[in-house]
């Protein structure tokens, strides 16, 4: 039972092997990345959202959920932060979306109580603070790391999508090709 680590000023880590790095200069670019992922992910996919407080994790989840609902012809719905409720679920016309924030949890047993492990493989799961998952993280999960740019480098964000499982290789290739359009350059 330890407190979550304090959030140091972001210092982008070395990209994971095979990961795609994007520049998100403004909130609109984060929206575009969310919409891009919304069109390519679906039931059974797990997207882990890593990054310090204020790096845009909830913002990206909001954009992704909004885009999927819009594509399914569903009305716009508020997407509140799940920090206090831990999980919010949404209809997306397919397997549904689970938006979870594990910030307040302490480890895998509590995640199991939440029912999140059961949702993996059935719904599209967006998981903030995924370090609390421990060994419960699916092996074919996608991991998106968001980071602030260093102080003085502007308000933008750096995004890095890693997908260790080979089934996501085409997705990473497509994202690399779309990086410029998403960044708005």
């Amino acid at each position: 039972m330890t407190a979550p680590p304090a959030t140091p000023p972001a210092e982008p880590a070395e990209p994971a092997a095979g990961a795609v790095v994007l520049c998100l200069p403004d909130p609109a670019a984060t929206d575009r990345l969310g919409a891009w992922l919304a069109a390519r992910l679906g039931a059974g996919d797990v997207l882990l959202l890593d990054g310090p407080l204020g790096s845009g994790k909830t913002h990206l989840a909001r954009a992704l959920i909004g885009a999927r609902r819009a594509a399914a012809g569903l009305p716009r719905e508020d997407v509140p932060s799940p920090s206090f409720t831990l999980v919010q679920t949404y209809d997306d016309g397919a397997g549904g979306i689970w938006h979870a924030d594990l910030y307040r949890l302490h480890g895998p047993p509590e995640v199991a109580e939440l029912g999140l492990a059961d949702a993996f493989g059935a719904a599209l799961c967006l998981v903030e603070w995924p370090d609390r998952l421990g060994g419960l993280a699916p092996r074919d999960a996608l991991r998106l790391r968001l980071a602030h740019l260093p102080p003085g480098a502007g308000e933008g964000r750096r995004a890095e999508l890693a997908a260790p499982h080979p089934r996501h290789a085409p997705l990473l290739a497509a994202l690399a090709a779309a990086a410029g359009a998403i960044a708005g350059s």
Binding site: P27, D31, H59, G66, P80
Partner: peptide
Amino acid sequence: RPRWPLDAGAPALVGGGRRGAKG
């Protein structure tokens, strides 16, 4: 009812969380 808006008839807020400040 895990989801139960108090005012079920109300539309999602203007912006619907999509135009808000960064999260």
